[in-house]
Design a protein around this nucleic acid. Structure first.
Lengths: 251, 251
DNA sequence: CGAAGTGTTGAAAGTGTTCAAACGTGGTGG
DNA sequence: CCACCACGTTTGAACACTTTCAACACTTCG
């Protein structure tokens, strides 16, 4: 039917999203403590739930396209998305990866500023910007939470800028893997194993490299014993300290 | 006494900041309509004014250092600052330039995440984070304004990421000049003349290039007639369209 | 007028990219 | 069950580009 691994089923056009009628259970949502919903009390969450639509997307599906009117915001509950900006000549930049609990909608633009695509079978909660605006004024805690999120993302964006501008491929990849490990962690994982939802090309377009360089860098890290690659999409971190040193991660 | 042009007087240590006792006139502040203060009514601004300290810094002065406890937020009223992150081996990234009306303080970190330095003689309004926190809860409009700012900066940060990761030197510089022109505009300027408060090295470290490449790129743009350089720190834009085309600026 | 700080320009070198081909894995169908 | 095909990934070699290193020009300041 549809794949779980990254890939493009039928690039554009297709059923796209499937409504998920039975999924309206915010109170028992697995990612509630991670998402912006954590700012709301039980009864308040229900107000949010009333204006939320739960949707499923197959890997490779496109949620929104750059330039379309910005009509809704999203919270991912499972799977993963990528935010992609593409230049006329095909050069691509993966602005970010969106993991369960993450929120997409911190923008002041009238239009979407990048494509949003599912890199794995995903479920998302969709709320219209109009409803969101209303909820924000109604619940100041929500607005505060959004500001907090925005500041965190801003901090992360500055890190990313340093990485893109000044780090070498090895350092970029080390930094990327550590950041991903930190985000993925807290799920009972031992923490030293990271699953890459995205392909090499996505990593390349995220770090400002080519797929070939990313591949070569992976093998270099493996040869030096900093990581192991039990599977294509699984990285086992064998030397956190060395990786941190590479990434100049002083946190 | 102190210079108006970029430069490092006495790198570290020195009187640093000079208090400006007579400057407490938020109501008549030239940048009030630009700054976050625009969210507050006249009487509310006075509450802000009561906890604000106006400070002057000479070009080259350092306001805060990376790693120091994040004690205050700033709004620039005149001059310009740069946000700088430096790696152990000296690689430098100018995360951003702060112009009059801009706000520095959108962060969730306990510590400053970059150095803040004056690139010209500057005046800033300083508010402690504690006071700011209090004001935010007291005036929801302020919080909303901050969120708006954060979202705008987030949008800008994504643009910057694309620029750093995928644009070529010519394109990066074109993009930079246009963004700067857009920010500087609205001050009665004809709009086709941009004053560069920062040196070539700062531009280089902002765009992920070397100073030499920036210099070469400036001359290339000049030779092609897209810009003129009447002075070292003044750029006259002669062909907006071509510059936009270079920067792939579809806005 | 000389010195220092900046910026410009030139030639050499290093590094990631490009282009091309081989590899491996997963899914399909015989 | 196995061969085969497709896709993503890996690897190799030539290339293009920015960087590096060095020398020179310009402006400001002492």
């Amino acid at each position: 039917m549809h794949r779980t691994v990254p890939g493009f089923a039928l690039p554009y056009a297709e059923p796209a999203a499937a409504r998920d009628p039975a999924a309206h259970e915010c109170l028992h949502c697995a990612v509630r403590h991670l998402a912006i919903c954590s700012a709301l009390a039980c009864d308040e969450v229900q107000a949010l739930e009333r204006v939320t639509t739960s949707l499923s997307y197959a890997a490779g599906a496109t949620l929104v396209r750059t330039g379309e009117a910005r009509q809704a915001v999203y919270t991912v509950t499972s799977g993963a998305l990528r935010l992609v900006r593409t230049l006329a000549d095909g050069r691509r930049q993966v602005v970010g990866f969106v993991l369960p609990g993450d929120y997409v909608g911190l923008s002041e633009s009238e239009k979407y500023r990048n494509d949003i695509e599912a890199i794995a079978d995903s479920r998302v909660c969709r709320v219209s910007v109009a409803h969101m605006r209303q909820l924000r004024t109604q619940y100041p805690q929500l607005e505060r939470k959004l500001l907090q999120r925005a500041c965190l993302e801003l901090d992360a964006a500055q890190d990313a800028a340093l990485s893109l501008a000044r780090l070498q491929p090895m350092e970029k990849l080390a930094d990327f893997l550590l950041k991903l490990a930190a985000r993925t962690a807290g799920q009972g994982d031992p923490g030293n194993t990271v699953t890459l939802m995205m392909g090499r090309g996505d990593i390349a377009d995220h770090l400002g490299l080519t797929m070939e360089t990313v591949s070569r860098t992976f093998t270099k890290l493996r040869q030096q014993g900093l990581i192991a690659l039990p599977q294509l999409h699984v990285v086992e971190i064998r030397d956190f300290a060395a990786l941190h040193r590479l990434a100049s991660d002083d946190t």
